[in-house]
Design a protein around this nucleic acid. Structure first.
Lengths: 266, 266
DNA sequence: CGATCTGTTGACTGTTATCAACTCCGGTGG
DNA sequence: CCACCGGAGTTGATAACAGTCAACAGATCG
C-alpha cells in the first residue's frame, strides 16, 4: 500500500454513500498522513487517548472493543475505507479501544485536513456527516441484532453486513473475502461464547450457506444467507447502485455450484 | 407545560453536559416551536418521515423502536430535555419509529433554529455536537449491555441509566421517579421476553433494590443497584458535578428521607 | 520442536423463551 | 349498578437455546 494512493480508499468509501465530483477527489488527493502497519489484535487507539489525527483504515479490519469488565464486547467493526474515529474531528476523547482484527494498515490523518476539505466543499462536508450518521445507524442495527435475534441469525447478519460493506468499496467481487477473524472475535462481536460461535459457524457450513477456511470466507448461497439473517441493507446508507447490484446476484458464486441457487427463471 | 418555558428543558440538558453562559441561555430563550401532547404508545415520528423540525421531549419518555420484523426492539430511550432526532438538522430521513412510552409532551422546533444558534454561539454548537456524540456513546454502551450481560443486569443497568439521566436534568431528586413503562416496554428495550422481564423485576424487588408500583419506581438501594449493574456513568458524558453528586449518595433514599440527601462530611 | 493460539467436540448446567392459564384493574356500555 | 372487556401483571410447566468446563487436534511460530 503506497501512501500516495491512500486517499483513494477514502474516496471509494465516500463514493459509496454519495456522488463524488472530480473536484472533491482532487481535494482528497492532497491528503497528508502517516501510514502504520499493525499485527493482529493490536491496539490502534486506547481509551482515553486524545490525538489530533483520525485513523483511516486502508487494509484489514479493526473494531471498537469495550474491555471494561464486559468480557471484551466488540461494539462495531470497520472495513477498509472507514474512519473509525471520524467523530473526534471536533475534539473529544476516545472512549473505547480500537483494535485490529487480523493484520491491518492504517493511515493517521490530521483532523485539520478533514476540517479544511469540509470548508472547501459543502458536498464533502455532507458526505462526511453522512458517514457519521451511518455509523450511528449501524450501531442501532446492531442493537436490534443483539436484542432480537438468536446466535445463528446474528452471525449470518454480521457476515452479510461485512460482505456488503466490502462490496461497496470495491472489495469482495465474487462472494469471497479475506476474513482473518478469530472465532473468538466473532463471538465477541455477536455476544455469544466462543464455543457457541464455533457450533454456529459449523451449522452455516453444514447448511451449505458458506465456507470458511484459511482465513477466507466464501459465501456459497448469498440469497439463503440474506434470508436467514433477515438482512436488509438500507441502514448502511449505500447508494442504490451498490445495494441493487448485490441484491440481484442470483448466487452462482464459486467453483462447483452447478445449479444456481435462488430465483428460477424470469 | 407552557410554551414559554419549553426552552428551559433544552437548557437543562445542555447544561448537564457543558457550561452554559447567560448569553447562550438568552439565545435558547428565543426558541420557537409547536407543542403537542401524546398518549401512551403513540407515534411521534415514523420511519421515512422527512420533516424540517426536531422534537424536543418536554415531559415523559420516548424511544426509537425498530418495528421491522424484530419484534419491536427498542433501540434507545429519551428523557425530558433530549432531542431524539437532533442529528437530522443537516437533513436526512428518519430510519426508525419514535414512539412515546407513557403520556408525553413534545415541542417541534424548526431545524433553522438550531442552525442559527450554532452559528451565533460556538459554545452552543459544541454542546449540540456533544449531545450527538453522547447519543452514539449511549448506543455503544447499550450494545455492550445486550451483548455481554444477563437479563437481571441489563434491567438494572437500564434503570440506573434512566435515574442518572433524569437526575442530570433536575428530575428524580430522591431516587423516586415516574416510570410509566409497561413491562413489555422494558422487555423490548432489554431484548428479553415480557414474561422474563416480569420475573426479573420481581427479583429486583425481592432483593430490596427497588420498588415499582403505580407507574412509579423507587430505588431503595442505589449502591446495590449500581454494583449489580456494573454501572459506571462516564459514557453519559455528564459534567462531574452531576455524576459525583449521585455516586456519593450512600443509599438512604426514598419518601421519608429526613436528613438531606447528599455529601455528609469529610 | 516445544509453546501457544485456534478450532473442535462432548457432557453438563444454567438461562431464557414459549405456551397457557389466571388475576387484577380500569373503563365502557347495557 | 353490574357485566363485560381488554390490557397489564403474574404464575407454572416445558422446551429451546446458550454458557461452561474439560479435553484434545491442528496450526503457527519462535
Amino acid at each position: 500500500m503506497q501512501v500516495g494512493f491512500a486517499f483513494s480508499k477514502l474516496a471509494d468509501r465516500l463514493n459509496s454513500v454519495s456522488d463524488l465530483s472530480d473536484d472533491d477527489v482532487e481535494l482528497l488527493a492532497a491528503m497528508p498522513g502517516t501510514v502504520k502497519h499493525f499485527g493482529t489484535h493490536h491496539h490502534v487507539l486506547r481509551r482515553g487517548d486524545d490525538t489530533s489525527h483520525c485513523c483511516l483504515l486502508l487494509q484489514g479490519y479493526s473494531c471498537w472493543r469495550d474491555d471494561e469488565g464486559s468480557g471484551g464486547q466488540i461494539v462495531s467493526i470497520q472495513v477498509p475505507g472507514d474512519v473509525p474515529d471520524l467523530s473526534t474531528i471536533h475534539g473529544s476523547r476516545i472512549t473505547c479501544n480500537l483494535v485490529t482484527l487480523g493484520p491491518a494498515v492504517v493511515i493517521f490523518v490530521p483532523h485539520a485536513f478533514f476540517r479544511e476539505i469540509s470548508e472547501q466543499s459543502p458536498a464533502l462536508l455532507r458526505s462526511l456527516l453522512k458517514l457519521m450518521l451511518i455509523d450511528t445507524s449501524m450501531l442501532r442495527n446492531w442493537v436490534v441484532n443483539l436484542g432480537s435475534r438468536d446466535a445463528l441469525t446474528r452471525v449470518a447478519h454480521l457476515l452479510c453486513e461485512i460482505a456488503m460493506r466490502l462490496r461497496a468499496v470495491g472489495l469482495n467481487k465474487d462472494f469471497q473475502m479475506p476474513l482473518p477473524f478469530t472465532q473468538s472475535d466473532l463471538a465477541a462481536a455477536c455476544g455469544i461464547s466462543a464455543v457457541h460461535a464455533n457450533r454456529t459457524i459449523q451449522e452455516l457450513r453444514r447448511s451449505g450457506l458458506l465456507q470458511w477456511q484459511a482465513k477466507t470466507i466464501t459465501i456459497a448461497d448469498w440469497n439463503g444467507l440474506v434470508r436467514l439473517a433477515e438482512f436488509s441493507p438500507e441502514y448502511l446508507g449505500l447508494r442504490h447502485q451498490f445495494t441493487d447490484e448485490f441484491r440481484l446476484e442470483p448466487s452462482p458464486p464459486q467453483f462447483h455450484a452447478r445449479n444456481p441457487v435462488g430465483v428460477s427463471s424470469p
